[in-house]
Amino acid sequence: MSAAPGGGAQTLRTPGRHGYAVEFSPYLPGRLACASSQYYGIAGCGTLIVLEQNEAGIGHFRSFDWNDGLFDVTWSENNEHVLITCSGDGSLQLWDTAEATGPLQVFKEHTQEVYSIDWSQTRGEQLVVSGSWDQTAKLWDPAVGKSLCTFRGHEGVIYSTIWSPHIPGCFASTSGDQTLRVWDVKTSGVKIVIPAHQAEILSCDWCKYNENLLVTGAVDCSLRGWDLRNIRQPVFELLGHTYAIRRVKFSPFHASLLASCSYDFTVRFWNFSKPDPLLETVEHHTEFTCGLDLSLHSPTQVADCAWDETVKIYTPACLMNPP
């Protein structure tokens, strides 16, 4: 455990805003977006904060306000200035950081809170998937004003929707209905439902090195790895968090490394291929830790955000000496 992480965290305060999600820009090293909400996202408005990090520290680049809480954010894969957020009023907002104000577009179709948004990283297609508490996921092409497709099946609120980095048109979702589901946007055909936990599942992510491997993080405090070729039981289970796991991300640089953040205020780093998988527990937040991302540009850089009104960028000790 390390109370003071290896790299020494750089902190940006976000007064009056409680962080829900952070995402590194795929284009500009050090640029970071944070989706945040007033009053812990229970009420009030939301703010998209774009940060810039350099040797001097982290600073504000831009902020955009929305009149409901913002719960997730994703960067465009075809324009370095563009991002999309999703909010409690059921809408998505497309923002241009080159402009000082307002969303360029708003997509309002979901009928309840939208809790996840993800821009596909694969191939020529520019597809975005959103997951909502109205129990549907929707497929969007930002160039088209309305959704292309609606995916029904979940029997609870959807918390997480993530594109496969390998399989074109394939995404995973997790829900309060205790299932992980895998969808294919090209066929309306049969996909997979995995009753992955006996608790609400708040997050999932795809391994960047194995197209069949997914991880889920749930209210039962466990992380479980799933091989889509044999879904009867998890291929690994990681225990250690003491409250619900809020978000989980695989490393872009190490095949068996992943990170998770939790209502227990910690961020934990894991190597699921090791007999003793917990590499490190970072305890630098004083409230629920909801946002987490691993940099695509630097193998050691991590960002997270919490309801303690801070965004932190740091290098955990375990990444100084990669697994």
Partner: peptide
């Protein structure tokens, strides 16, 4: 007691 199940949950009208 967990059971894996295939799913037909999918795009509309399936």
């Amino acid at each position: 007691g967990l059971q894996a199940a295939p799913c037909s949950g999918s795009a509309p009208a399936a």
